[in-house]
Amino acid sequence: MNSPFWNLGRLRRTVQILLLLLTVYGGLLVGPYLADKLSTAFPSLSCIYDQQNSAYCVLRPLQHQLNHRVGESIARLGEVTLEAFRPLLFTFLSFFAFFIVLNKAFCGWVCPLGTVQEMLYRLGRRLGLVAHALVPPRLYQLRAGKWLLLFLLVFLLPLLAGLGMIPGIAGDPYCQICPARLITTLLTASTEEMAVSTQGGLAFAFAAIRNLLFGFTLVAALTVRQPFCRICPMLALHAIFRRFSLLQLVKTPHDNCGHCSLCTRACPMDIPEISGKDPQRAFSEDCTLCGRCAEFCPNDQVISLRFGPMTLFASSKHYFSHRSRTEKPDGTPRLCTEREKPGNQPP
């Protein structure tokens, strides 16, 4: 990664754009039918409502199966069999087949919503807008949000809908409010997911929340990094399995750790634990394996991305000095003139 043009950030951006095209428009390539899809339990927000997508997000079958298989099976008393849980098991297995290889990199490298938010943040930097970093304790409060959404919207409400305790429209509540549903369909020039039900009730409420979240995310992403990712239930689902994958973020403590905090400043999720001394806590539940912490760590071999025993990328003084010439840790690009000014040398 010592090429004058290529660095990990540029490589990731290229992969993100290619995978955005694949997930949003890939149906034109792989075909229209369910059986043609790359996966029906894809570990990123490849939205099922996008008519041209190439894979379906795992959160949709999870909700669907908890609603129609598990919930309805429990509702028909005495019919609870292993059969009701078979599709759920297959969904988890399909999800894990992907996840074991790339782990949470599905958030940092693949997710189309994540890519759009990163592009917006970059636009915000270009426009010179203020950048906000989330710090504890607000950061920790927000972290709970994703677990709440996972438990409530992906697991509990679909199950209750299957049991007949709440209306059927609440059978896939997360998909009803997910801003990826709007962003990905708008990218295919379809405005239909933006339309709000005029019949009132839950359909109206869900669509209103979805549009509000979409609008908020769009503007907030200009100034806060990855605003929706902070509460995304997909990140929570990944966090459960993050220790069971080949791709890992590994940290070796260094004397500087806890002092410069460049890695936390570089992190799009503002994870404070990454700059701490505890290597176990560095691979946090919020980590998206984007690798920016490793890019902006000024010490050799302190933070690395490892695939099994293989080191894919490790921090180094040399790489850091090159990388920080073009970009500040918070993502602000350094202009040529700024780079040449004395005193603007990387820390």
Binding site: M194, A208, N211, L212, L218, V219, A220, L222
Partner: peptide, 29 residues
């Protein structure tokens, strides 16, 4: 059609409201 019993204008209105809610973040402290 996809807009049956639905309002695109209301949807755009809610999206704009969401944007408005986020605009305080754009102010420089």
């Amino acid at each position: 059609d996809p807009y049956f019993d639905k309002s695109l204008a209301s949807g755009a209105g809610f999206a704009l409201l969401g944007m408005l809610c986020a605009t305080p973040l754009l102010r420089r402290p």
